[in-house]
Design a protein around this nucleic acid. Structure first.
Lengths: 233, 233
DNA sequence: CGACAGTATATTGGATCCAATATCCACGCA
DNA sequence: TGCGTGGATATTGGATCCAATATACTGTCG
């Protein structure tokens, strides 16, 4: 440890973000799918992906396997992987999981939240007010929620919550009337943060449960009308 | 379709259970880990596993990647994979997830349960009375629970529940006083099944929440005394 | 004209090979 | 003697190659 502590920040900043190609590709593909950049049903040709990333098929295969375990892609033996389809029932599924998990995470986290956590959450909320890009909006929303859950001390639960927050965002991409949902959502966020700041765990959980339920309903309504408009093939 | 329908059952029965080596190895390793046959911290050498399964390292690598995504093994770049460690906090983590998810699954499932479902659950319960092998007992317990959740119509939620039921069983392997827990657990199972049979969804959820909580407490007590006996190295 | 069989092709699954890197150990130096 | 350096070794990460299989096409037969 002869290295000046001041230098460590630079070392960290310049350290390659990913240590293996597999890690990098897995993260990139996950982002691409969750952000909605590649639609459900899209075939994922190993050769094409390998060429796109400038590697061989092998790290692509490993990354696809990890995404399969996360239900983001589906494998059909000898036919390849396709991006998992979205559907109204899948949205309901994700909403149900969120509704079950997030209050549990919040309940464990609120008593441990620090002033810094609450300030960070407030900052994220303020940023969301001005944001127009839906992708960035989704990220801010996830970070806001995750900040409030972060102190729950249950890493598995936290990972599951993050995963399903992101999975839910896949659907928001396709909502053109998302703006109508935005104002009430923000009001719920404010109420949630207030309850957390007051240390009222149960009130916070109630607000959150309601918030997730509102989101579920909003999504269900949207997807149902969409399904009527675009009949299943 | 010239094949007599009567033959299809035989075809299915004799169809190789796994169509790719990766699938097979993934299932085998998962079972080995969840059953407690290989302890946490065990290094998983790709070459050794490949030899043990009679294949090359490649399907082993893909299987390990899938298990990594399920948090059953941990990868350390260029150092290999090790079986995920068990700990008191991890057990608490899994218990919290179960407590959140299972009542949600049950609530959605109870109204859809058929008489056949309830009879199957009763059969499993009866089998459990006589069972002494802890591994088989765990499997019966999982199947009993899953039978009651099966009609929830939310496949992702169901998969998560199954995954964490199995993950929880990893801990029961190490409990030598599991027999003391067995009788009250069975009583709770009976009460749960009765409530389901009566179609009283909310009562069933209360019984289940209590059941999971009892399991959590039992596990926490056991692991705590164990941690005192075996200080962390 | 339609259905089936056989083949051709594309793509994945698996094996082998090479490169990169982490750990271990011996050695030298203060 | 203790620490740091350098190389040897084991193991993984990645590339390339071969085999297996699913799909599409083509031609033939009814």
């Amino acid at each position: 440890m002869t290295l000046s502590p001041d230098l460590s920040a630079f070392v960290d900043r310049h350290r390659p973000r990913f240590r293996t190609a597999t890690e990098f590709i897995e993260a990139a593909l996950r982002d691409a799918i969750l952000s909605g950049a590649v639609a459900g049903g899209t075939p994922l040709r190993q050769e094409d992906l390998a060429a796109a990333f400038g590697v061989s098929r092998m790290p692509v295969r490993e990354a696809l396997r990890q995404l399969e375990a996360r239900a983001l892609v589906e494998f059909h033996p000898h036919r390849g992987a396709v991006v998992a389809e979205i559907s109204a029932t899948d949205a309901a599924d994700i909403s149900a999981i969120r509704a079950a998990l997030e209050p549990a995470a919040l309940r464990a986290s609120v008593p441990q939240l620090t002033a810094a956590d609450l300030d960070l959450a407030a900052d994220l909320l303020a940023e969301m007010e001005a944001e127009t890009d839906p992708g960035r909006m989704g990220e801010l929303n996830r970070r806001f929620h995750m900040t409030l859950y972060a102190r729950c001390g249950l890493p598995r639960l936290l990972a599951l919550v993050e995963q399903h927050l992101a999975a839910g965002d896949r659907y928001l991409r396709f909502q053109f009337d998302a703006l109508a949902y935005r104002a009430p959502s923000q009001r719920e966020h404010v109420a949630l943060l207030d309850a957390c700041r007051a240390g009222d765990t149960e009130a916070a959980c109630r607000v959150l449960a309601d918030h997730v339920e509102q989101g579920r309903r909003h999504l269900a309504d949207y997807l149902q009308q969409r399904e009527v408009a675009v009949p299943p093939d």
